[in-house]
Simulated scan of single mutants.
Amino acid sequence: MAADGVVFAEVGRDVSDMLGFRQRGVWIVVGAFLAAVWTVVGYLSWETDSWIPMLAAAVLSCSVVVIVRAHGDPLPGLPTLVALLTGPLVSALALLQTPADLAPSVLLMWIHGGPTAVYCFTAVRGRFPAVFAGVAAMAVVFGFWGQATGQTFMDGVSRMIIDAAPLTMSMLFALVLRPTASSVFLLRQQTLERVAQTSADIAADEERTQQLDILNTLARPLLKRIASGEELSDAERTECALLEAHLRDRLRAPLMSELKLDRLAYEARLRGVDVTFIDDSHLDDDPAAVALDDRVTSALAALCADVLANTESGKVFVRVATPGRSIAASVLLRDGDENVRYELDHSGDVTVFH
């Protein structure tokens, strides 16, 4: 069963999903079961004039809720321990106030039938040893109750024979269900991985096509002009330099294109400003790395727009930091002897250094 647990851990599912334990309807079944138990216990408490059977029913109710709510496969250790102790504890508490003359009635059946239901689900969740231990302990309690009420030890144990059928069925069900569930969840995970890979391939193809279209639109006219062999004019040479800088930005700092800074950078370069964009946010391959917050990207776009629009000369360096740095991005303006540095933290606040 440990192998099953490994598979389920990989796909994030367990047998309880196939049993519908994640659905709200399961609580209707649980409520009906516990309502029946408490109805019998209420009558038994009235007959025996004792509150101890209610304590036993409370223990059983808590155990049922724990088993239904527990996630993981096989069943985790603490819920397994709760299930194991349910049978002997409920039996000991309930039988303490149950005289022998109630033995043939339905009032005795809930004492071993309730824990048996818990053991059935425990078996399906892959904890056979806990089921065997719990049933054995419960049988011992019934045996001593038989002796204490003027019967034999085996007379007490025989009251539980009826539980053999559901327990056997649950174990056979588990032996069939668990391997099947393992295969189903593994196939589901493989399907999800294939779909994700296909989606990634489609997205990559679309991005490649889009970039080729952009490159074709921007570079083809100048490439044709260069291929003609005619000497380029000064304006065309300037246009080539600007295009080269623009294409370099798209490769080195794709985030700046997403922030619509291409046009502002183009206009600043026309005025003679040396603009350099660097985006290092994609260099960290850690899947746990958190993308830039929207507040940071909005603040960065506004800051760059202001700096590029109001700079007439010098150099402008815009850099998005790698994940994990104390700052999210920085903008450096150099104009002669004047150096101004802007730093953005991960909340989008800007600090200016002169």
Rank of each mutant, 00 (worst) to 15 (best):
T98W: 06
G126Q: 00
L261S: 04
Y43L: 15
T238M: 15
L167R: 05
P104V: 02
E244T: 14
G31F: 04
V30T: 02
D249Y: 00
S298T: 15
D234E: 13
S183G: 04
V66G: 06
A70R: 09
E10Y: 14
F21N: 08
G134K: 03
L19A: 10
M160K: 12
Q190A: 12
T276M: 03
S183N: 13
L89S: 09
A253N: 05
D285C: 03
A174K: 01
F128M: 12
R295A: 12
S105H: 12
H346G: 09
A329F: 09
G87E: 10
D274R: 14
D274P: 03
Y266M: 14
A165N: 03
V350D: 03
S233Q: 11
L259T: 06
Q189T: 06
C62S: 13
W27S: 06
A219R: 06
T168Q: 02
L192A: 13
E343V: 07
A32S: 11
P115L: 07
F144Y: 12
V41N: 04
R178N: 15
G77P: 00
R252V: 12
G143N: 01
P115S: 10
T322K: 14
P323N: 00
L243V: 04
A219F: 05
T198Q: 14
V68M: 02
R225N: 07
L212E: 11
L107K: 08
L172A: 15
R341W: 11
Q97M: 12
R69E: 09
V106A: 14
L264H: 08
L232F: 07
V320I: 13
E338W: 08
R237I: 15
T198F: 12
P166W: 08
I226S: 08
D101K: 12
R271E: 02
D293K: 05
E338P: 09
V82R: 00
D201I: 10
I52H: 07
S233Y: 04
K260P: 01
T116G: 07
E343K: 10
A219M: 13
M256D: 01
D286V: 10
L215K: 13
G114R: 00
G146Y: 08
